[in-house]
Simulated scan of single mutants.
Amino acid sequence: MQVRTGSRPSSGSGRETQGPAPSIYRNRSIPTQQIMMELNYGIQVTPAIRLTPNLQYIVNPDQTRFPYYPKNIPDAFVVGAKLSVDLFTLAGLAKGPGSR
């Protein structure tokens, strides 16, 4: 068995190709499927303002940007929130949800 490192000889096109990855990276399995679960809920604070808290859990986060990272990226738990403000309702030019 022969292991090559470095670059292979050029085929004359002027482009060099990389040799195989170092052995530390070859034996690691990279997850191929990312699973994302999300939970959110909208709270209407006023007719013009809505708050939406958000929880996400990501299993096997996508690692295609760093395929030779020596360790798998751990699962992630993400907490976030979105605040929506309707300027027309706030200015009194329109009626927001729940307004009569």
Rank of each mutant, 00 (worst) to 15 (best):
I73C: 06
F77K: 02
R50A: 06
N40C: 06
S13H: 07
I24Q: 12
Q18M: 15
P31Y: 03
G42P: 00
V79F: 15
S84C: 02
Q44Y: 13
S13D: 13
Y25V: 05
M1H: 15
L93F: 11
D86M: 07
M1E: 15
P20T: 13
N60T: 07
S11E: 15
G98C: 02
L51F: 14
I49R: 07
Q33G: 07
V78F: 07
G96Y: 08
V3L: 07
Q33T: 09
N27F: 06
T64M: 05
P70T: 06
R15A: 10
S29C: 12
M36W: 02
T5E: 14
L55V: 15
F88N: 05
V85R: 06
D62A: 03
Q18K: 09
K82G: 02
P70K: 10
N72S: 13
E38G: 12
V78E: 11
S10H: 09
P53V: 11
M1W: 04
S23G: 05
I30W: 06
D75G: 01
R65Q: 02
R50S: 11
L55K: 09
L83P: 07
R4P: 12
L90S: 05
D75H: 03
A91P: 12
L87H: 15
Q56S: 08
K95T: 02
G42L: 06
T32G: 08
M1Q: 11
D75R: 01
R4S: 13
L39V: 14
F77C: 04
Y68P: 00
R4D: 10
S10P: 00
P74R: 03
K71L: 10
N27V: 09
F66C: 00
G12Q: 04
V45G: 14
E38A: 09
L55R: 10
T52M: 11
G42E: 03
V85F: 08
T64C: 05
S7C: 09
T52D: 15
P53D: 15
L39K: 08
T64H: 12
G14W: 09
G92V: 12
G96M: 04
P74E: 01
A21W: 14
M36H: 04
L39C: 13
I35G: 13
N27P: 02
P31C: 00
P70D: 15
N72E: 10
